[in-house]
Nucleic acid binder design. Structure first.
Lengths: 233, 233
DNA sequence: ATAACCAATCTGGTTAACCAATTTTTCAGG
DNA sequence: CCTGAAAAATTGGTTAACCAGATTGGTTAT
């Protein structure tokens, strides 16, 4: 499953159908927080789909905190009221697979924050990890090899050093999509990789010196040279 | 599945075991991008776990873009090299369920951005939706009722108006956890809800007037009064 | 020697049967 | 009429069987 979240296949169609069926059922039956949904078997029969499909849909809704299923008891609507429930369900149904621009925008937002947090919170162990990643990146670039992976690892090391597990998770989620798009559009050429060494070094030094503002500035520069060619694709 | 991502249960343990087994196997066999993993059946036997467990682990890795399984063919390592792969796998294995502080930090970051984007990109239809949510919120508060849901819906409407589907998704992901924690710690009392009306109104006006800077300031104020009592829990 | 074809096998995905825990119903005993 | 215990039915979760499509290796015709 990519960020077209929690749905590998094109059965997205029928899954959304099930979700909207569940929504209608909740509204029609006026189910309130804590109430029990009909059993999976009943739902699968009612909607004319397989039980696995129902289970997938329920799991997706569970991911978003809308339902909560208890092992040998039933599936219950969570402690959020009908209004919020309907609003969220509409959002979930309308969610589109993110475009590249949206991904880049989000990545920049996240990284300008994680680099500041990392400057404040990094431990010595974090610094070690980052230095390792930086060293590996240098080596690859100077050997003229492709260094997209090492570049990525350096940024993930920063995210980890930020001490914010949510942002760390989000970085992990968008990273593979970013890479895919980079490769598709041939973003990282050799010149930029070479400039990247100094930029990475600057970022690292700022984090080491625990200077959040400087770190942010250096990260901005890094992104500027990175995206100056490729933002209009 | 909550943000302890893609894992409802406490079988987290054995799933991480499988993932680390897969990592070892990839390293030991020197599997490169595009190579095929052993079949699910073989892995389940090799690791001494059920095939469903293996499938779950694979799906999780697929979510992070590390593996890619083709229907009647096999599971393949994605187009990211061994170095990045190992780095990401380590991160994934170390991922902890996010603490409340991390969630709040991330929410503020996201919302200060989405509100600016919404100011620039909001359509008339977006404005309508936001006004509806705002109106519902006012009504509930003036009636002395609990309005956490309506508050949330207003913020989600902003996220949608931002036109950034990735941030919208992330907001949807963290929202339920935020709500749960809010309720657990009794964050939103009646006084704050009343102040919230004016604050929401201000934010809405700024977005309507397409003034990103003002919108951000108003959002900052909103968060300040919201978290001033509860940040030290 | 090469290309085309075919059947046996292996693949991830799907469905149906099964399980243990829970909830509801039942009914004997007071 | 209750009460309560036990049995029957229902639940989500798990496992095993099955499926259709893809792969593979060998065979044959050119």
């Amino acid at each position: 499953m990519k960020l077209e979240i929690l749905t590998n296949n094109d059965n997205q169609e029928i899954q959304n159908g099930i979700i909207s069926n569940i929504r209608d059922l909740i509204n029609y039956k006026n189910l309130e927080p804590g109430d029990k949904l009909p059993s999976e078997r009943m739902l699968s029969e009612k909607f004319g789909v397989s039980r696995s499909n129902v289970r997938e849909a329920i799991q997706k809704l569970e991911f978003y905190g809308i339902l909560k299923s208890k092992p040998q008891s039933g599936t219950f609507v969570a402690d959020i009221g009908q209004v919020a429930m309907n609003g969220m369900l509409d959002d979930i149904l309308r969610l589109k697979t993110p475009d590249f621009k949206s991904l880049v925008e989000t990545r920049i937002l996240l990284e300008l924050k994680t680099v500041r947090l990392a400057s404040q919170r990094r431990t010595d162990k974090d610094l070690e990890k980052m230095e390792q990643a930086l060293e590996a990146y240098k080596q690859k670039v100077t050997n003229g090899e492709d260094a997209v992976q090492e570049d990525l690892l350096f940024h993930l090391a920063i995210a980890k050093a930020s001490g914010n597990s949510t942002m760390n998770t989000f970085m992990l989620i968008i990273t593979p999509e970013i890479i895919t798009n980079f490769e598709k559009y041939h973003v990282c050429d050799k010149n930029q990789a070479f400039m990247g060494i100094q930029e990475h070094q600057d970022i690292f030094e700022a984090i080491k010196a625990q200077d959040p503002q400087l770190a942010k500035e250096k990260m901005k520069i890094h992104f500027k040279t990175l995206y100056q060619y490729c933002y209009n694709i």
